[in-house]
Amino acid sequence: MDFFAQQFFNALQLGSLYALIALGYTMVYGVLLLINFAHGDIFMVGAFLGVFGSITLDLPFVPTLILAMILTGLMGVGIERVAYKPLRQASRLSAVITALGVGLLLENGMLALTGADPRSYPDNIKNLNPPLLGDQIDILGASISAETIVIIVLALLLFGGLYFIVQRTKWGMAMRAISYDKFAVPLMGVSQDQIISMTFLLGTGLAAAGGILWGVAYPILNPYMGMRIGWKAFIAAVVGGIGDIRGAAVGGLMLGFIEIFVPAYGKDIGVSSTWRDPIAFGLLLIILVARPTGLFGVARRQKV
């Protein structure tokens, strides 16, 4: 039981991180119908900005998190203005390819500008000692580190905050309206540009938060981390039904559970941990064949 609980919390931690990143994919897709392939690398930039905040500026955890979220969010808005906005009228493929290019540019530019040494966070960020919690917490016989709890709770908070913004505020209403009908919304006097910028701000800010929490949970940061993790989160978004916020959360958690539980229980029957990628992607394939628009996605009926 304690083994199961331990793995359960690990899966919850990984899954909530995937979910945070998947949210960015799904929000941008919902508003712009654009697969933002650069999102994984924006997540990487967020994690690196955490190094900047915590080591160079010597800030504690929460200010580092906020600083990285703001800076990354602004960068996301800038990328949208420079690279995606001119292509809004062009074919959708052009924008997708541009996004792919922006992603490669970010990760290789980061590598070229900062060098290849791996980074990691200082101890005051890596060993969080939140009030009311000790270093280790015993739940169901498993001892869970405080960071895991903080990551899960923070991810839930951010997720709830986003859900509130999208469902309860005027901005969120405008976002949902644009994803419903992007031609009618500007006619109602809502600035499409502002809403799209806002979407990018929120999505990339969440990616930055995900990046910093990732750096807390796992030791090594390098410029290529965004690619692998970004693709995984993207799969989570698609499995949940891209464009749907609940879908991103469910997809992310699902992916986390698969990635943790397959090696944990599979190694007895000869399935080692290196099989988790093929299994995760194979599952994606099966889900997409069975439900072509993901778990929560609604197929848009094409008018003839």
């Binding site: 690196f48 190094v51 900047f52 080591i55 160079t56 980061m110 070229a112 500008l113 900062t114 060098g115 290849a116 040494d117 791996p118 980074r119």
Partner: peptide, 10 residues
């Protein structure tokens, strides 16, 4: 690599 490396120490 020297340009941004001082801001992101290894």
């Amino acid at each position: 690599s020297g340009i941004l490396a001082p801001f992101f120490p290894a």
